[in-house]
Amino acid sequence: MRTDLPLAQELAELTARLADLLLTRESAEDAVQSLAQAAKEAIPHASGAGATLIDPRGRKTSTGATDDVVLEADRLQYEMGQGLCLSAWAEDRTQIIADIETETRWPEWTEAVSALGVRSALSTPLTAGATPIGALKVYSDKPGTFTDRDVRLLEMLARPAAVMLANVQARDAAERASAMMSEAVADRDAINLATGILMERERLGPDDALSRIISLSRLRQRALRDIAQDLVSGRPVL
């Protein structure tokens, strides 16, 4: 990323690149990985960058990182329940650490990441509409690294990125719901067919036939749909 460009032009170029990166990714996991790489390239004096999507309970759902140190710093945050990007998400505002060695917030986390060689850090929330859905962060192995320009650039980058990521999440959720619905319909049809087969073969009523399938499922410790599919296909119910 060219740092000699005016900020508005730099952001416009970066946003256009982000749209291509994020909206063409197959999953939210791929998209946050691309966003992490874009953040590191946008702030080249950062030693690593990451992006995380967080659910309303504070649990990460997707994460991307450019370097191992970022993965470890983030792992420690979620393990300890405190840290820079968790606060950026929870408070919906940018957080900055000028020097880990003198930072008094998040004492357990800062002590742990100091051992990783992290000296300064910057994180801003990913907010779609009025809802923080995650955080974007960059780390450096030098103190006092991040400037006011870096803060503005990361914040301005996070706004369109959050909207794009929310769209990717919605698409993922819709695809999962569709797949679950298709699977549920297929399971129901198989169970109905298997019930009919037992009714015909063993002269059972519908309730007794279904009870037989459920009993076989419990006895064989296999899913109900698997027992039904075996009956439909004529395979032995093992």
Score class of each variant (00 low, 15 high):
Ala158Lys: 10
Asp141Gly: 13
Asp148Lys: 11
Ala36Phe: 02
Tyr78Leu: 10
Leu22Phe: 07
Glu91Leu: 15
Met199Asn: 07
Asp67Gln: 14
Asp74Lys: 09
Gln95His: 14
Leu11Cys: 08
Arg222Tyr: 02
Val69Thr: 15
Leu5Lys: 10
Leu216His: 03
Arg171His: 07
Asp148Phe: 02
Gln37Tyr: 01
Ala31Tyr: 03
Ser217Leu: 07
Pro160Phe: 11
Glu103Phe: 09
Ile100Cys: 11
Val70Arg: 03
Val185Gln: 12
Asp141Pro: 00
Val70Ser: 04
Asp189Ser: 09
Pro236Ile: 05
Ile100Pro: 06
Ala128Trp: 03
Arg59Thr: 10
Ala19Pro: 00
Thr131Arg: 14
Ala130Thr: 13
Gly48Ala: 13
Leu14Glu: 07
Thr61Asn: 00
Gly48Thr: 04
Ala19Phe: 02
Gln37Asn: 05
Asp189Met: 12
Asp208Leu: 13
Ala31Ile: 04
Lys40Leu: 12
Ala12Cys: 00
Ile100Asp: 10
Ala88Asp: 06
Thr15Ser: 12
Arg152Gln: 15
Glu202Trp: 14
Gly50Glu: 03
Ile214Met: 12
Glu183Cys: 00
Ile191Val: 15
Asp92Pro: 00
Thr94Val: 12
Arg105Pro: 01
Arg218Phe: 01
Ala184Leu: 08
Val118Tyr: 03
Lys40Phe: 01
Leu193Cys: 04
Gly50Asn: 08
Gly50Cys: 02
Leu7Lys: 04
Gly205Pro: 02
Ala49Lys: 06
Ala115Arg: 15
Gln9Glu: 15
Arg119Asn: 06
